[in-house]
Simulated scan of single mutants.
Amino acid sequence: MNRDDVIYLALLAFSMCFGLYYRRINDHIKKKYIGASLGFLIVLIVSRVHIIHVLITTIVNGLLILYTDRRKCQVYVFSFSFLYLFFFRTTAYFGIPYPPSHTNLVQMMLILKIIGLAFEVNSSYQLSLNKGDAQNNTDDERLENETFQIKDIGFLDICCYLFCYCGVLTGECHPVYKL
């Protein structure tokens, strides 16, 4: 077993143990920032200097979600993410050292989460457009439209969601995470 694998397993074990403390945090805002800070630290430990790829993906996709048309933001995020993933996987051809294998894992998990978030933002926008038709909906449809809407989110909310320590190494996100 090489050094990176030992670090990865130690971080997974630490994350599981930290969950016992994390569950006891009642303040939603404090919990969000603690989870994101720890997640960022884990990514930094695993990726070292190659964290730049994770940061580029996060910044560009966050801006795409916030500042492009919400009817098409998922298309833009999907396109950029997979184009950048193609670049990321071929960095050796551009004279850039190939990132560690665990950074590859983190990058793929991040891309899956950001694309899912873009689709959720798009769905929420579509639901808000349909809200005008709420008079014709049944009570169940109205409840669904109100329950699953993402309210105004900011760049920091996106970063906290993506870097939540629960999912940076495994792809999971805290089951009650709220944006």
Score class of each variant (00 low, 15 high):
7 I>K: 10
10 A>R: 08
15 S>I: 02
16 M>I: 02
19 G>N: 12
20 L>E: 04
21 Y>P: 02
23 R>S: 06
24 R>V: 05
25 I>N: 07
26 N>S: 12
26 N>Y: 04
27 D>Q: 14
32 K>E: 10
33 Y>M: 11
34 I>D: 07
34 I>G: 07
41 L>Q: 10
44 L>P: 09
44 L>D: 08
45 I>L: 15
46 V>M: 12
46 V>Y: 01
46 V>S: 06
51 I>L: 15
51 I>P: 06
54 V>M: 14
56 I>F: 02
56 I>D: 00
56 I>L: 06
58 T>N: 05
60 V>C: 01
63 L>H: 05
64 L>G: 01
64 L>I: 03
67 Y>G: 04
68 T>C: 08
74 Q>N: 11
75 V>D: 11
75 V>S: 13
75 V>H: 13
76 Y>K: 09
77 V>R: 01
78 F>P: 09
81 S>A: 14
85 L>N: 09
86 F>E: 03
89 R>G: 00
91 T>S: 13
91 T>F: 00
92 A>T: 09
96 I>W: 06
98 Y>G: 00
98 Y>N: 08
112 L>G: 06
116 G>M: 04
117 L>Y: 05
123 S>K: 12
123 S>I: 00
129 L>H: 01
137 N>L: 03
137 N>D: 08
140 D>R: 12
140 D>Y: 11
142 R>F: 00
145 N>S: 10
147 T>K: 12
150 I>C: 05
161 Y>A: 05
166 C>E: 10
167 G>R: 01
172 E>D: 14
173 C>T: 11
173 C>L: 05
174 H>E: 11
